[in-house]
Design a protein around this nucleic acid. Sequence first.
DNA 1: TTGTATGCGTTATCAT
DNA 2: ATGATAACGCATACAA
Lengths: 337, 337
Amino acid sequence: MSDGPTITTIAQRAGVSIASVSRVLNGLPTKAETERRVMSAARELGYVPNSAARSLKSRRSNQLGFAIADIGNPAYLAMIREIQPIFKAAGYRLVLHSTDVDTADEIEVLRGLGERYVDGLIMVPLRMTREHLDMFAGARAPIVIIGSVPDGTPVDNVRTDSRTGVRLAVEHLHGLGRRRIGFLNGPLDTVPGAARGAAYIEALEACGLPYDKNLVEVGDFYRAEGAQAAERLLGRAPEIDALLCANDLIAFGALETLRRTGRRVPEDVAVAGMDDTDLATLAWPPLTSVSLGSAERGRVAAELLLDRLGKGPRAPRVVTVEPRLVIRASTTGEETR
Amino acid sequence: MSDGPTITTIAQRAGVSIASVSRVLNGLPTKAETERRVMSAARELGYVPNSAARSLKSRRSNQLGFAIADIGNPAYLAMIREIQPIFKAAGYRLVLHSTDVDTADEIEVLRGLGERYVDGLIMVPLRMTREHLDMFAGARAPIVIIGSVPDGTPVDNVRTDSRTGVRLAVEHLHGLGRRRIGFLNGPLDTVPGAARGAAYIEALEACGLPYDKNLVEVGDFYRAEGAQAAERLLGRAPEIDALLCANDLIAFGALETLRRTGRRVPEDVAVAGMDDTDLATLAWPPLTSVSLGSAERGRVAAELLLDRLGKGPRAPRVVTVEPRLVIRASTTGEETR
DNA sequence: TTGTATGCGTTATCAT
DNA sequence: ATGATAACGCATACAA
């Protein structure tokens, strides 16, 4: 717990100047004898370079940030699992921000970039306000946004195609003969909530099904809220024969409600989620889900960020990850796990 | 993306010295006029203090670390979810280390403490080597270990009582009339693996059941490995009527294998896990599990760390969180979710 | 090859 | 109340 040695300590011990110490430590050409003495002094003292001093001098923190609303969401977790090892391999530490579904918190994180405690940031904003866009424009470090930003926004952008994803699911349910397809959505003022809500309507039309707003219930992107939303929806529209859920957590909640109210899945109600999280194969029945490529989006975001850090300024890039429908027993009744 | 303003920039703009700027920014007594000019200059320039310079001067990073083997494990996730908001509320950022089940990685994190990029660390070591203990002793920042350390180790320590936890589960299964209770463990050279393995034997004896090493299978703490271990065990000892699993992930894997091989849970084989993760109620049937208080251990660890940071050196403390058996349908067959 | 001296951006001490 | 200046630990331009 002593007050760590500095290059000055080493210099005294080795009887050389701090410049020589620094040179040896950084592998610059040095006389063998000097190098030997410095290295052994450093080892004996248990020297470790001070990161604050290094950062101040180098103007690099060797840290990268990842900001999400909720670590508990397995879709975000899948991203972290990709991002962390990529950052680590590139020599960066991961600073994790959980913004608590709070827009002000997100803004705070963006403002914090000015402190330069990270060299770059990956953010998954839940809402996208004017203030977000302003902060992106003035940001003092590279930002990668997972989720859609308006064209021209000066950040790299990794998107998914919610519209296609929702369509895949609705077509699947329609193809199974379902005609009363309910939709359990998250808050409409969130980026995914708005996108998936609109896509649901589009997809119904593409299938030639009428849009009945009575079949849509809005809750939040969590399991408990999903269970409650399902209960409200089924109370109001008991004739529903399929349920599309805006994410897997909602779907898990819906499965609970369906079981509790004595409905069979998929015989009475087919259920599909979105995100295709690890948990989809844990639920019973295994959950059909639209993969939005969470892991891949995380990986791509990390790579974009590192690439920009390595190569300096360049035009913002947009990468779109294609959704993919993963069919399991919650819609087909077959054991396909 | 410009090169952020510093107090020097502000001083020029406001026509005062950097000392005055610093004073105003830190709320020290200043003449109203000076304060006004500095504040408006700072606002106009969008000034944000540089964290590296601040850290170098203050010798504090305002960052705290959390090091775990695998973010994917929901037990660790439960800890993060407690720790992050506590850190944030106290003004600290969270630096997350995932050590990839690699002991060398853990040691590297401990060595990194010397860089002083964090003011303290919470670690959940999977293995506990001589090297770990040495690093603890020489650590240059406060450490809280979740998991058991030998008495006298100079770190705060938050434990769970594996022995009691395993006993609760075994007694429960025994009370249900089960007499061939198998055990699916994780690696024996890990802290939890060793503890739970020993506890299993003890618990059997306490129930008057013979220990049959044929009923124990060792895999790893993951779902896929759990499924495989269950398959090996059931192939070898098909008469098993209960399965205790060293964590929930293993149990989920076991449930898969049991279903796939046509065994009913709990009629043919009762299954219990450990950790009582969120996922326990998602599985089918809902999983009986021994809660080891993951969330609480996280919370306590965070509080211990902050307390030490606030109050300075003091004797190492040990807090033990009591386990609790949460009974669900995977052992009793009743719907108790 | 090595040492001296300077600067990174901040805080804090000391004069004024 | 304010300004000049040192110091935090490191890297480096320059001089020797």
